[in-house]
């Protein structure tokens, strides 16, 4: 990472810490904000958060690794999370899964070469009555079939 990038990130984290507070209870909110913007929380970002909140880096790492929506490695610009839980599974998740994989040329858990999309599975999205469902970033799409899923993925930048 370039020094300039590092400085910018530090400043950004500092303003987040100012916004949410230095108390431990602000940690998850700060991490969520970093994740939202950068699609991951880098080792540098984790250490900066730790430094500013006066906790140990490993504590930040521990929290990041606990929550499925936080990650330490860079991901694509868009994170697509297909629900793998029972109702969506029964409603045809597997077909959507296969088509999407074939179309994007990657497996679930991987990111497209152009960093456009990361495919992931997720557990119950609370859309069981309208499955299969998937999240594209924070937006939810329901009643998917292979065709609609591909259309949605093709539209995202």
């Amino acid at each position: 990472m370039l020094v300039l990038e590092k400085n910018a990130l530090s400043e950004e984290i500092e303003s987040l810490v100012n916004q949410f507070g230095k108390e431990r209870s602000a940690l998850l909110q700060i991490l969520q904000a970093i994740q939202r913007k950068h699609k991951h929380i880098s080792d540098f970002a984790q250490q900066e958060v730790a430094r500013m909140m006066e906790i140990h880096p490993v504590e930040v790492n521990s929290v990041v690794s606990f929550y499925s929506f936080l990650c330490t490695q860079p991901k694509g610009r868009n994170i697509v999370r297909l629900c793998q839980t029972i109702s969506c599974d029964m409603a045809g998740k597997e077909k959507v899964e296969e088509t999407v994989q074939r179309e994007l040329g990657i497996k679930f858990g991987q990111t497209t070469k152009d960093k456009r999309i990361t495919l992931e599975f997720t557990n119950c999205l609370g859309m069981c009555d309208q499955g299969p469902a998937m999240l594209v970033n924070e937006k939810v799409y329901t009643k998917l079939d292979p065709e609609t899923a591909i259309n949605i993925l093709n539209e995202i930048k």
């Binding site: 108390e23 431990r24 209870s25 940690l27 998850l28 929290v63 499925s68 929506f69 997720t122 557990n123």
Partner: peptide, 19 residues
Amino acid sequence: SGAYVCGEETALIESLEGY
């Protein structure tokens, strides 16, 4: 942030506290 167990009330509190 994506953790089913946080629906357990004390886990939820831990999560609110940043753990």
